[in-house]
Design a protein around this nucleic acid. Sequence first.
DNA 1: ATATAACTTCAAGTACACTTTAAGTCAACC
DNA 2: GGTTGACTTAAAGTGTACTTGAAGTTATAT
Lengths: 144, 144
Amino acid sequence: MSTVTATHYTIGAFAKAVGLTAPTLRYYETEGLIEPHRLANGRRYYEEADIDWVKFLLHLKGTGMSISELKQYVQWRAQGDATIPQRLALLQQVKADFLVQFNEVQHHLQILNDKINWYEAKEAGLTADQESFRAYLQRLEHHE
Amino acid sequence: MSTVTATHYTIGAFAKAVGLTAPTLRYYETEGLIEPHRLANGRRYYEEADIDWVKFLLHLKGTGMSISELKQYVQWRAQGDATIPQRLALLQQVKADFLVQFNEVQHHLQILNDKINWYEAKEAGLTADQESFRAYLQRLEHHE
DNA sequence: ATATAACTTCAAGTACACTTTAAGTCAACC
DNA sequence: GGTTGACTTAAAGTGTACTTGAAGTTATAT
């Protein structure tokens, strides 16, 4: 007969493990994203598997999902496999929105890079005195 | 002797041209990002070149610059070429921060994609019943 | 034993970027 | 010439995602 020693985290230790603060974890809990266990004295404790769950939530959050979308996702998840189509549709929509944003942001970076290069050229005295950034962009054929 | 007809935009027309609302343009103005001209009766008007300027600001904003960073940038710009080093340093910092974020976000997308693929496989009955998403990720060798 | 650090709840506060409202002026069209 | 719509300012309100404070309880270290 063997005894398994499960790792228990206090909210503070768990916060460090996932890179959040204790208040943020309590906030996420009120939003229904996490449901830690409780000791007899009322204190929260978290387990190893909760770390993966929170990190996964943070990945989803990082793709642009709001707290309320995450909440919806979590609620569907709690209802079992019957809600897999809804969850899949939500994630596909999140992905589609993400890709739109992603392309926009790459264009923003392009302009930022152009401007940096323009300043660097100007500092190095390599740009014609009167060439405007607008003209410079056109020269590079980045329209808009 | 020739007469040049400059295009004048009211705030409403200009808002449409740059994809913002009139209140947002006024807000940006109070933040020092734009300085439209005024007619004798006190109404704002904008010119063609202002469109490029606002669009450029929106590109910078899209790379993660806050309103106050944009304000700082605009103030330096108004001070002339002597502030080019500061402006360049600011934009380079913005770019560095952007690239960090960009990499993080690509990783988030990777996880989102994995999850979508996992759901799709599960719906198609192609995943072993009991395989968890965690195990699935490990199988794909995406650690963390 | 006692200080201090970590936990508890609940409510209020913060930051950012707008958005909306109120009260009024001005301009264009029929 | 009167109604409708666009403009003006200033101040207050909104949404999101936390963060901080207050007041109290519990656990850990010396």
